[in-house]
């Protein structure tokens, strides 16, 4: 099995491209770059590659990953250069490395780190902002209701999302502008979207957030290896 793991960015206008459209974009890029990608069997053969996790629409990233199955091994530098030469501005392959592709990348992902930039409606002192962040971190449990549709039934269930929040840090506060860094659970064992943190800051931290100018950027994805949190490559 020849599986290559790739780290890439998704920036600028490309933040408006959905997960499915990104998949199609890569399919075409592989073809244009003559990457010897493996295809599935059957009536509708499709190229074998999978993205680690979907990035929400409107979010930029420096740390996206995918696994690609190849027909034959090629030099990683050539692979990166060839692919970058056909990719649109806003998507760059940063790293590539062969992996043992026994487990799907998707199932390995555990955490994401985000930078979230937003404005508050009225200027507050630094420690008040710190306090409102702590009001979330100091909680043992944060229950939210999730609704799921199953056939015609709506199933409601309460889940504790506190354990999905690893940390929240205030990076910058300049007047009304605030930048925080947060690491949140991501993947099949639990997933928390970064905008939930903003909801919590409003609800528990009493921050009044201007909903119009929120910028979210994913810095990195993490897997757990030998009980340590590490990057996928």
């Amino acid at each position: 099995m020849t599986t290559i793991r790739v780290k890439f960015t998704k920036e600028e206008d490309l933040k408006y491209i959905s997960h499915l459209d990104l998949m199609r974009l890569f399919q075409r890029a592989f073809r244009r770059a003559n990457i010897p990608i493996k295809y599935s069997q059957g009536f509708n053969p499709h190229p074998k590659f999978s993205l680690a996790t979907a990035l929400p629409l409107g979010v930029t990233s420096d740390g996206e990953y995918m696994d690609i199955e190849l027909e034959k091994e090629i030099n990683t530098k050539t692979f990166i250069d060839d692919l970058n030469s056909v990719l649109p501005k806003g998507i760059r392959i940063l790293k590539a490395s062969y992996v043992d592709g026994k487990k799907s990348l998707m199932s390995l992902i555990r955490w994401s780190t985000y930078i979230v930039e937003f404005n508050i409606k009225e200027d507050l002192a630094n420690d008040i902002v710190e306090n409102s962040i702590n009001s979330i971190l100091n909680k043992d449990k944060i229950l939210i209701t999730k609704t799921k549709r199953k056939r015609n039934k709506v199933i409601e269930r309460k889940i504790d999302i506190r354990k999905y929040i690893k940390d929240i840090m205030l990076l910058i506060k300049e007047g009304k502008k605030i930048i925080i860094k947060t690491t949140l659970k991501t993947g099949s064992q639990g997933n928390l979207k970064p905008n939930v943190i903003l909801d919590l800051l409003q609800e528990y931290g009493n921050l009044k957030i201007d909903c119009d100018n929120i910028k979210i950027h994913r810095l990195e994805l993490f897997i757990e290896h030998n009980e340590k949190v590490v990057t996928p490559i």
């Binding site: 399919q27 075409r28 890029a29 592989f30 073809r31 244009r32 056909v86």
Partner: peptide, 8 residues
């Protein structure tokens, strides 16, 4: 066109 677009 295949080269320029990568369409399937």
């Amino acid at each position: 066109l295949v080269k320029a677009t990568g369409h399937e």
